[in-house]
């Protein structure tokens, strides 16, 4: 059985690799047809720039700076989203109270938030604030759904046995919300990476992937822009993958291997 599963995983991986190969080939053909590296440099050129970036200290400082901002925005959105999502999952009144605010945040274009934040905050704070505002409603909604959708039959069982509210909250409500929480966290993390880098492009803080992107753009270095963008995609994908692994192992521990 494990061999069969391994084979299926390898098969999926090979298919994915084939897809990447096809996309690279299409890119190479398009770059050849356009024949202007300013508009579309070939993949080899971007790879060479990316390789040079990897061996430069400013790149790693930028990675650390952006990673710190993403971590801060992610942590804030997890904390705030869990707090208000839990409260609104337990109380319809809190849910109604927060609904207009959340709708407004969700409907506001990210660019407008970045521009407004630039009036209020130092350049390194803009991406954190904006990413927090974009990721917070995602976490709020996920946690709210998890808490509100706790199995009614289990709640009824806890009521009959007069299980204290504190125990009910920590042992029943919170674990019930785990799947929703993890799905929300994964979405929020991806959103934080995208919005933090977008915020950095406009607010230009020191040591930032977004600043690297913008600098390359101003130097008309299209290959550089694509290399910085590739670095962002890789970092975002890696952190989402790491979060997924941690979530799966936590679920496996909680459910005794039945997750």
């Amino acid at each position: 059985m494990p061999e069969a599963r391994l084979g299926a995983t390898a098969g999926r991986f090979a298919t994915g690799l084939l897809g990447v190969g096809a996309a690279l080939l299409a890119w190479k053909l398009a770059a050849g047809a356009i024949a202007s590296p300013l508009i579309l440099p070939p993949p080899g050129e971007v790879l060479a720039v990316f390789w040079r970036l990897l061996s430069s200290a400013p790149f790693w400082r930028a990675v650390l700076g952006t990673f710190g901002r993403v971590a801060a925005a992610f942590a804030l959105s997890i904390l705030a989203g869990t707090a208000t999502g839990t409260a609104s999952g337990l109380s319809p009144r809190v849910k109604d109270f927060l609904a207009p605010l959340l709708t407004t945040i969700r409907a506001t274009p990210v660019l407008a938030l970045i521009l407004v934040a630039m009036f209020w905050l130092p350049s390194s704070g803009v991406p954190v604030f904006t990413a927090f505002l974009m990721a917070y409603p995602v976490m709020h909604t996920s946690v709210h759904s998890g808490i509100a959708e706790t199995d009614r039959e289990l709640i009824e069982m806890a009521s009959v046995f007069k299980v204290p509210a504190r125990v009910r909250f920590f042992k029943l409500r919170l674990p019930s919300a785990e799947t929703h929480f993890l799905a929300g966290a994964k979405n929020a993390l991806g959103m934080c990476w995208k919005v933090v880098v977008a915020g950095e492009v406009l607010s230009q803080p020191a040591r930032a992937l977004g600043t690297g992107l913008q600098d390359s753009r101003l130097s008309l270095d299209t290959a550089g822009v694509l290399a910085w963008a590739a670095a962002t995609v890789l970092l975002c994908g890696t952190s989402e993958f790491a979060l997924g692994l941690a979530a799966r192992s936590a679920a496996k521990r909680r459910h005794g291997g039945a997750a």
Partner: peptide, 16 residues
């Protein structure tokens, strides 16, 4: 509760 062991399930009911 699927995330609790058999004895923890009993302990959960007995907590109050």
């Amino acid at each position: 509760l699927p995330w609790l062991t058999a004895s923890e399930n009993v302990a959960f009911a007995l907590s109050g």
